[in-house]
């Protein structure tokens, strides 16, 4: 039987990539129950993701003990280290041990680095999260005004120019753009460091400066997308009745867009932002390599090349958690912001 579903909420949701239509509260559905259901889905998603990661990594070829001891180590040394690292327990014990540990906040001990993984991940998140936020803010600071300007100058050279710029921005690989940025702003002009990261507690200013260029590299394609979405959203609302009414009341088109259009263009933009956070987090993995930032992505990379199973799976699940949590929060925000949904839920 086909669901007889009201699809008006869908009109503002992009039908692709993470728009959570399925989770939208239906008319008369209490908000708390909705949140609870989403929370449950969120937890189930994480559990399944953890299972997938574990199964994949459990099959992993390569012996971490052999890696640590290297090319000329004796079999006896390798076997001794393997036992010491607890690689002999059965798979299901190791899986549930891992999950139970994480719930307690204990991520285990890194095989190669021999320190608590929880601390390692926390250190890296102190780079990756701010970097993602930086990219997010930069993409909004760049993308939204440009989108607004383009919408206001619709059809004029400024609009065309900006949209060509946006097309190019989407098309440039971010790692390549990052390198070009470094050459200009770090090597030639020496305004900013070429990379590396000073811990926040040591010098917050230096830490911030270290994130600007990688943030820009990450932000460029996202800003371009935002500019396009913003422009389209604004162009759309300007065709709608309330703008026409406003203009009839004597406002210019720009004024009408400023006063009424922006608020209505907010929903599609919010959806994109939620999506972008997830993509930015993933994008950091590549960009961290260009700027030698000690982020979560580089941690995973190193751990993979060192066959540090416990570290790879814990770091990966944290990354997955970050993505899933963002989607979850976007969902919640969405229900709070959309006036229609609020009315329905009241």
């Amino acid at each position: 039987m086909l669901p007889k579903r009201a699809t008006n909420a869908m009109r503002h949701l992009p039908p692709c990539g993470g728009g959570r239509e399925g989770g939208q509260p239906r008319p008369g559905f209490p908000v708390t129950l909705f949140i609870l259901r989403r929370l449950l889905t969120f937890a189930a998603t994480l559990f399944v993701a953890a299972l997938i990661i574990f199964i994949l990594l459990d099959l992993l070829p390569g012996d971490p003990a052999r890696f640590i001891l290297g090319i000329n180590a004796s079999e006896a040394s390798v076997a001794a280290l393997r036992t010491q690292m607890g690689l002999d327990a059965p798979a299901h014990e190791r899986f549930f041990g891992w999950i139970a540990g994480m719930v307690r906040g204990d991520f285990g001990i890194s095989a190669t680095q021999r320190v608590a993984i929880g601390g390692l991940i926390a250190e890296r998140m102190a780079v990756t999260l701010p970097l993602t936020m930086m990219a997010m803010v930069l993409s909004m600071l760049i993308g939204l005004p440009l989108g607004i300007v383009a919408a206001m100058r619709r059809g004029k050279p400024a609009d065309t120019g900006l949209m060509i710029l946006a097309q190019t921005g989407i098309a440039i690989p971010n790692f390549w753009f990052g390198m070009l940025l470094t050459l200009v702003f770090a090597v030639a002009l020496r305004w900013l460091p070429t990379g590396g990261f000073t811990p926040w507690h040591e010098n917050p200013g230096a830490a911030f400066r270290g994130l600007i260029l990688p943030g820009l590299a990450l932000a460029l394609p996202q800003a371009s997308i935002l500019a396009r979405v913003m422009r389209t959203a604004l162009v759309d609302v300007t065709g709608q009745d309330f703008i026409r009414t406003a203009r009839a009341k004597g406002l210019t088109r720009s004024e009408a867009i400023w006063r009424h259009g922006l608020r209505n263009a907010f929903l599609p933009v919010l959806t994109i932002l939620g999506l972008q956070f997830a993509f930015l987090i993933a994008g950091t993995i590549i960009v961290e390599n260009v700027f030698y930032l000690p982020g979560l992505g580089r941690l995973i990379f190193t751990a993979v090349s060192e066959r540090d199973l416990t570290l790879v799976r814990s770091a990966t699940i944290v990354l997955v958690l970050a993505v899933t949590a963002t989607m979850f929060i976007t969902d919640l925000l969405y229900t709070l912001v959309d006036p229609r949904l609020r009315r329905q839920n009241a």
Binding site: L57, L60, A282, I285, I286, G297, I300, F301, T316
Partner: peptide, 16 residues
């Protein structure tokens, strides 16, 4: 669940 894995992460897992 699929969406929770960014493509780079999938690639890392498969590559390992």
């Amino acid at each position: 669940v699929t969406f929770a894995f960014p493509s780079v992460v999938i690639a890392i897992l498969i590559a390992t």
